[in-house]
């Protein structure tokens, strides 16, 4: 396969392929962080995760239109405003959903699966009624599209670098909140022993609501970032949901480090195999490997040590 190419060509291709793997890794981390918070810390199976992401994408679409119409001079910077608003919008919807639906179902974890799936259908139809069934085109500032030539042959997509930086920033942010803040301590306490946490005076109801809201907010930011690399339509969230659950479950629910490790291994495996095999085959082999490993180690890669 490589006989016809010079060493420098091969070097350039492998370097770019390495970047492709890292970009995929960042995308997986962004998709999965919100769910890792919700599923990992609260045990809620949120089937509407993709729809919270798409809400962020639609917010980005609206903000880009507003900037284009009223503040064309600032258009190149609108993306940062859009991401903050996406966090607020998805987070607020998350708070509302937790209050209206999820909190009644904590004792019936399987029912949350059905309820959130229903919620995902409702949200899809809502997007369809408001924005139309067709995909909307989000215009991205010019500086974010295009590539950065590192050498003559190696070019790196700018939006890929952007997604990478964002993934690192949000991961660090979530880590600080989870392990260095008061809220994080409470979340982890509730996760370990809900009754005891309640007894020592932690407001579990409010902490749950906030956790769900933050998880959804992070999903919204991810959705906002994905307008650069993917489509924005009523059902686009469905494109991400399978990979998202795969990453979180494979990493081991409840462990942020596990989520990141699993995103890294799945993305590298997939990206390397995609290069040597056809796309569908790469996906099949990735899924088979994950299923195989989960059969041997059902708790996932990393687990929290809990006293049950």
């Amino acid at each position: 396969m490589f006989a016809d190419y010079s060493m420098s060509e091969l070097g350039a291709i492998f370097a770019m392929q390495g970047f492709a793997g890292l970009i995929l890794f960042s995308v997986f981390v962004l998709m999965a962080l919100g769910l890792a918070i919700i599923f990992g810390q609260m045990g809620v199976i949120n089937m509407a995760h993709g729809e919270f992401m798409i809400l962020g994408a639609y917010v980005t679409y609206i903000v880009s239109n507003i900037f284009a119409a009223y503040m064309p001079a600032l258009f190149s910077m609108y993306f940062f405003v859009a991401m903050i608003l996406a966090f607020i919008a998805s987070g607020a919807l998350g708070l509302f959903v937790e209050w209206a639906m999820i909190r009644h179902l904590y004792k019936r974890p399987l029912d949350t699966l059905l309820a959130t799936w229903g919620l995902s259908l409702i949200l899809q139809q809502l997007y369809r009624s408001i924005f139309g069934a067709r995909e909307v085109g989000v215009s991205i500032p010019d500086w974010m599209m295009g590539s950065l030539p590192l050498t003559d042959m190696i070019e790196v997509p700018i939006n890929g670098i952007f997604v990478m930086i964002l993934a690192v920033t949000i991961s660090v942010g979530v880590w600080i909140m989870m392990y260095r803040s008061n809220w994080g301590k409470q979340v982890r306490a509730i996760n370990q022993n809900r009754v005891m946490a309640d007894a020592v005076g932690i407001n579990t109801a409010w902490t749950d609501r906030l956790t769900f809201g933050i998880g959804c907010g992070v999903a919204g930011v991810a959705g906002s970032a994905f307008t650069m690399i993917g489509s924005t339509g009523p059902t686009a969230g469905q494109l991400y949901i399978v990979d998202t659950f795969l990453v979180v479950v494979f990493g081991g629910a409840g462990s942020l480090l596990g989520t990141i490790a699993s995103a890294f291994s799945i993305s590298q495996a997939q990206s390397i195999m995609e290069f040597f095999l056809s796309g569908s085959m790469a996906k099949v082999l990735t899924l088979l490997t994950v299923v195989g490993i989960l059969m041997i180690r059902p708790q996932g890669l990393f687990t929290l040590k809990l006293r049950k």
């Binding site: 291709i13 494109l239 990206s271």
Partner: peptide, 20 residues
Amino acid sequence: EEYYPLGHTQFNSVINKIRL
């Protein structure tokens, strides 16, 4: 000649292959 599953959203690998 290559095929990707419906709904696939990551094409960086195939774009590298095309470059090659």
